[in-house]
Every structure is written in C-alpha cells, then in structure tokens.
Computed example of a mutant assay.
Amino acid sequence: MPKINTYLNFDGKSEEAFNFYKSVFGGEFLMISRMSDMPGAEELADNEKNRLMHISLPIGKDDVLMASDIVPSMGHTLKIGNYSYISVFTENREEADRLFAGLSEGGTIEMALEDTFWGDYFGSFQDKYGINWMINYPQQPD
C-alpha cells in the first residue's frame, strides 16, 4: 500500500509555520534544508537564500508533514485556497481538544469541535497560515 504524506508550500513562512506545528505536535524535525544549500544558490535573490527548500516533521507513528517555500525569482507563485485539508484522527477526546486548541490559535474556526450527528467528535478550521485542518476523534458506540 502506498503511504501518503501531506506536503505544503509557503511564501517564506515554512520555518515559522513548522516551528508552530512542532510546538503543538511535539517531535523533532527529520530534515531542514535551505535554498542556499542547493546548487546554483548564488543566483538567488538575497531574500530568497534563507527560504526552506525542504522541512519535515513526523506526526504520530506513520505520518510526516513536509513543506517548502516558493521561490518567486524562479517563477513560483502561491495561491492559498480551500482545495485541501489536513485531516488528523486522534486516539481520544483530550488529544483532539489539545490539537484543535493549539493549531486553531490565531486562525479561523469553520466548525467548532463538538459531538456530531454522525457520532464522532469533530471540528475544522483554517490556521493562521491559511492551512485547512480537520480534527476527528471517531468515537465508538457504547
């Protein structure tokens, strides 16, 4: 079975966003590399050399959240939109509450974390970096 990891793009905010995500999820970065590390970096604008080429943070035991910054001088553009969500499934309500509170801080709540008609504890929001998240605790019937 293939493994799916979420990969995000930012406009110079990858490091800031991932330090925030690390503060919520914990763990250590698997890799951080900067645009200045790549061949031809001397051709980049000075304000682009410190941007991240790649960063990765393990989330739980099987998933890795990854990202990079766009490089405008190479023709990259970033469009923030509602075309994707990162869906996090927790092992209990307390973990759902903690992650929802931490990740939604400074963002916009779309649906408050609550018991839903389909039986799960669920909420969704856009974080302060424009990334859409869903937090879900799939409760078992008594």
Rank of each mutant, 00 (worst) to 15 (best):
S87C: 10
V71D: 00
S33Y: 08
Y83Q: 03
I80L: 13
A67I: 14
I80D: 10
I32D: 01
T90F: 01
D63M: 12
M31A: 12
G60Y: 08
A67K: 08
I32G: 03
L65F: 00
T90S: 07
L52N: 08
M38K: 00
H54N: 11
L30H: 04
G81E: 08
D46F: 00
L30V: 10
M31H: 07
M66D: 02
N47M: 07
D63Y: 09
L65N: 04
N92G: 07
M35G: 06
V71F: 00
R51M: 12
F29N: 11
G40I: 04
N50R: 13
S56A: 15
G75P: 13
P39G: 09
G40V: 08
G81A: 13
N92T: 02
D63A: 15
H76Y: 13
I32E: 09
I55V: 15
A41S: 15
D69Y: 01
S56W: 06
I80T: 15
R51W: 10
F89Q: 08
I80M: 09
N82C: 01
N50E: 15
N47D: 15
L65T: 01
G75Q: 12
D37C: 03
N47L: 06
L30T: 08
A41K: 07
I86Q: 12
S73H: 06
G81F: 10
M31W: 05
D46G: 00
L57H: 08
L52I: 15
M38P: 02
A67W: 11
P58I: 09
I80R: 13
P58H: 05
S87N: 14
V64A: 03
K79L: 08
N47G: 06
I32F: 07
M35Q: 15
H76N: 14
D37G: 01
S36K: 15
S36W: 15
F89T: 12
N92V: 05
G40S: 08
I80W: 05
M53Y: 10
R93S: 09
T90Y: 00
V71L: 04
D62E: 13
T77M: 09
G75L: 14
D37Y: 05
F89G: 03
L78N: 06
R34G: 04
S56F: 07
T77D: 11
L44S: 11
N82W: 04
V64E: 09
S84F: 14
